[in-house]
Amino acid sequence: MSFAHRHLLGIEQLSQSDITTLLDLADTYAERNRQPNKHSDALRGLTQINMFFENSTRTQASFEIAGKRLGADVMNMAMQASSIKKGETLIDTAMTLNAMHPDLLVVRHPQSGAVDLLAQKVNCAVLNAGDGRHEHPTQALLDALTIRRAKGRLHRLSIAICGDIAHSRVARSNILLLGKMENRIRLVGPPTLMPSQIDQFGVEVFDDMKKGLEGVDVVMMLRLQKERMDGGFIPSEREYYHRYGLDAEKLAHASPDAIVMHPGPMNRGVEIDGTLADDINRSVIQDQVEMGVAVRMAAMDLLARNHVAAQPSVA
């Protein structure tokens, strides 16, 4: 089992075998997480700091539980309320924390590239928990694990990613990961929410949702930010739901056993019909949350092994 990375900054840096290694380990953690005793000592003695410069409940909780189940000392820092407000730069904040010798730093930041910048300045392993519109690697990995468990494989599937691709780090990481694993990727959404020259990423682009969903195995919905609905990118919430909201009628164009995914939190009635989201025969949204913990345990475990191996021994 090899995973030769110091940080997990994005899917871009990972190879096919890195991804498989990670998912295989995550599978074992997924099983363990269903046992009454979920505890492991993989991160015993290590310090994990969660630095969230952007609001997050789900991802932060997931990383916290993952760290605690592995025996790490976990600390959450709500960076919005802290020194950044006092004018301290990102790098100074990083240097300050670095001096406290954390072993794992989990970082979310509203600016693309900010986590890369921070990783250059610290000695510990850094996990990107989402940077701007750039990447959200653990989300893509948990989506991949969910798909692999539901479909029995993670290659040669037809997968539609629908909605606000332009502003989505989840979409970017998923496009990279699913592409690396040799799947057919379709992007569905209004052209105002598509990044420029996205067709060069080896994907097919559709602005008609029914055509885009034709025969696909996986339907991955994205969250539409409220601030995009005011006429700047799309005319209105109701027109968006009419054309791009996932309901039973549109889903009928997908393969009969297609699964429905959503990274959460959902806007019911905007990008997805509420009943559909709760349909246990189609929706794997709860599995995604479950796999999130497993994938984050696997990622932190692998990075911690490399980190500890690189430390001078004190014995």
């Binding site: 693309s112 750039h134 990447e135 420029s196 020259q197």
Partner: peptide
């Protein structure tokens, strides 16, 4: 704007 900007997630 272009492929690179889209990959990096930067406003273009």
């Amino acid at each position: 704007s272009g492929k690179f900007a889209s990959l990096r997630g930067l406003p273009a």
